[in-house]
């Protein structure tokens, strides 16, 4: 507790509540930086769900069977639903959805960089469901214990649906691996392209992570980027091997002593390139969202005008 001595009394009390694992609720006092940090993280998470609709959504019209089509539609719909819970959680911190969307459009707010990669073949739908949703689950399970109540509760709900998605994605990969040679090649190619971006989803190494230390202290984050990444690798490698896929990492090996897989160096230049806007689809993803939002303005205006007329009519009756 000695490092709490320098805090002003309110902050000290706040930190003691955090240390005691109490949940922070919307009306509670909280340091402004805690609030801003949470808005940043929750909105980034919300935007990721929403932008994530695109790479998967673009295969709905091309899904190879009606069953796969229906499952994919339900999945993309779930992602939109997750976006909605998360925007609602962010709004409890005193920011509006319009402001959040504006920040997305101006680039002030980020979304998961992995959605800046294209989904080129049907196997990509398998790879995204399996790897991206696995990575999301690993991260989100740890966030079920995050210190902010509304965020923690949203995570509990979201994790249940994500694990269904993850199984569906893996099932697509398994079906491909049991199929013809061209299907196995398609699956392997998808893994080759999605493996490293999935590892990058956990963010920079702990030493280089800009927001990590404070977020851990406030228990917004519960486990470090590297810990979560390791857990993901340990899981995914075994799942890949179980269906005959080869993880595209020559340095991958089981480390008996650590009880974990060692894996090769992540190309952080590539990570930075994509985060800073030069991934294959950054511009399209954002432009798509801006276009839909702009094109929908007249609908939102119509709704507001209709509600206003209703209110006036009700007031006149009263």
């Amino acid at each position: 507790m000695s490092d709490n001595m320098s805090l002003v009394p309110n902050e000290q009390k706040f930190q003691s509540r955090i240390d005691a694992e109490e949940k922070v609720e919307p009306k509670d006092w909280m340091p402004e930086k805690y609030r801003q940090n949470l808005i940043r993280q929750i909105s980034q998470h919300a935007h990721s769900e929403v932008i994530g609709e695109q790479p998967e959504g673009n295969w709905i019209s091309r899904a190879p069977t009606l069953e796969r089509k229906a499952i994919l539609m339900a999945k993309v719909q779930d992602e939109a639903g997750h976006g909605l819970y998360l925007y609602a959680a962010a709004e409890t911190l005193g920011i509006t959805r319009d402001e959040l969307i504006d920040r997305l459009h101006t680039g002030a707010s980020k979304y998961a960089s992995i959605f800046n990669y294209p989904s080129l073949t049907w196997a990509d739908i398998g790879a995204i469901g399996w790897l991206v949703d696995s990575a999301a689950i690993v991260n989100q399970v740890s966030l079920q214990n995050t210190s902010y109540g509304p965020y923690a509760r949203a995570m509990v709900k979201i994790c249940k649906e994500e694990s269904f998605h993850q199984r569906q994605g893996y099932n697509i990969m398994m079906t491909l691996m049991q199929g013809a040679e061209l299907q196995r090649d398609m699956a392997q190619d998808a893994l080759n392209r999605w493996w490293w971006p999935s590892l990058m989803m956990f963010g920079p190494h702990d030493a280089e992570s800009a927001h990590s230390a404070q977020s851990m202290k406030w228990k917004i984050k519960r486990r470090s980027n590297d810990e979560l990444r390791q857990q993901f690798v340990d899981q995914a490698v075994q799942q890949a091997q179980a269906i005959g896929l080869v993880v595209p990492d020559p340095d991958l090996s089981w480390n008996e002593e650590r009880g974990h897989y060692d894996f090769g160096a992540i190309d952080w230049q590539e990570f930075q390139r994509v985060v800073s806007g030069n991934g294959p689809c950054n511009r399209q993803r954002l432009a798509h969202h801006v276009e839909a939002h702009t094109e929908g303005a007249w609908v939102r205006e119509a709704m507001a005008a209709f509600e206003a007329k209703r209110r006036t009519a009700r007031a006149e009756v009263a």
Binding site: V50, E53, Q54, G57, I60, M73, V76, Q77, A80, G81, G83, L84, Y87, H288, H289, A292, H293, E295, G296, A297, V299, R300
Partner: peptide, 12 residues
Amino acid sequence: WMSRAPFLEEDI
């Protein structure tokens, strides 16, 4: 319309 609706509730 998925990912193209005027607002998120309508996507859903």
